[in-house]
Structure formats: C-alpha cells, structure tokens
Amino acid sequence: MTLSALSHQAAAVEVLTDKPIDLPGLLASSHHEQAGAVVLFSGDVRNHNIGREVSYLEYEAHNELAEKSIRKILEDAKEKWPLNIAAAQHRLGKVAILESAVVVITASAHRSEAFVANRYIIDRIKHETPIWKCEYYTNGEYSWGNNCNCAEITGDPDKHLYSQ
C-alpha cells in the first residue's frame, strides 16, 4: 500500500459522530501488513465521577474546529512517529454508561511507537479539541465537567501541561 493510500485510509474515519462508535469495526479495519502493533484506546462512560452517580453524558462540539483540531493532532502524531495508522473518533450528543465516547487507534511496526503516539493523541484531544461533556446525575442535576484548567497555571489558553 502506498503512503498516500495510507493517509487516505486514516482520513476515511469520521472524526466526529452522533452514532455509537463501532469499536470492533474500527479495529478490524486497522490492521496493516507493516504494523506489528495495534493499540486501541477507548474512553468509556463510567457510572460515577468524584463521588456522584452519573446517569449519562452529553457531548457538544464546535464541529468545524473540533474536526480540524483532531485531524491536525493525527497529522502531528504521524510526523513525530513512524505510524502506519493513526485514527480517532469522538462521539457527540447523549452517550450512555458503558458506551465509548472517544476512540484512538494507532499502528506501527513495533509497540513502543503505537503506545506513545496513542497517549499523545488522546491527551491532546482532551486538552485542545473544542468538545465539552455535560454530566447528568441520577438525582437529575447536571454539570459541565472536568474542563482543562491548564490556562490557570500557564496563563495562556493555548499552552497546556501534558501528563507525559
């Protein structure tokens, strides 16, 4: 497969979706003859946060900016590491407990690059991509939650502190 065909393959995965993320389908299409390692990270919706029982989440995005942001992050990852595949998809709208809210898939010749690139991509998506979650609790209350608070430390909304 040519390099341009590979980029095409990565671009073919929709980065935003309002339908359930098809983890088995995305994984099935993420194998590559030159890649000995495939890493799939799924950010799942859990039933609790900071001691409160969560009923479900609802995500909203600035769609155009979010799509551009995720595509740029994937391109940056491909420049930093020799990846055969770099793909990501984020869910929008109401997402139930146990469902996947975001998936990142990386594939490379050896596992080291696939792991580190996957972590890089999900960290940047969580800090930079204009997508927001609203937590709805079992008692009927809601809160917009867990915003990136790097700007309070760096003084600049474009400067982030990454955990890696």
């Binding site: 975001v102 998506i125 930079e128 991509t129 927001w132 867990n146 790097c150």
Partner: peptide
C-alpha cells in the same frame, strides 16, 4: 464570533 471554553472532551 465563537467563544470557546477550555476543552472537556474524552
């Protein structure tokens, strides 16, 4: 003009 709060996706 869009006003974009800090991200909280993922």
């Amino acid at each position: 003009i869009s006003v974009i709060p800090p991200s909280s996706g993922g």
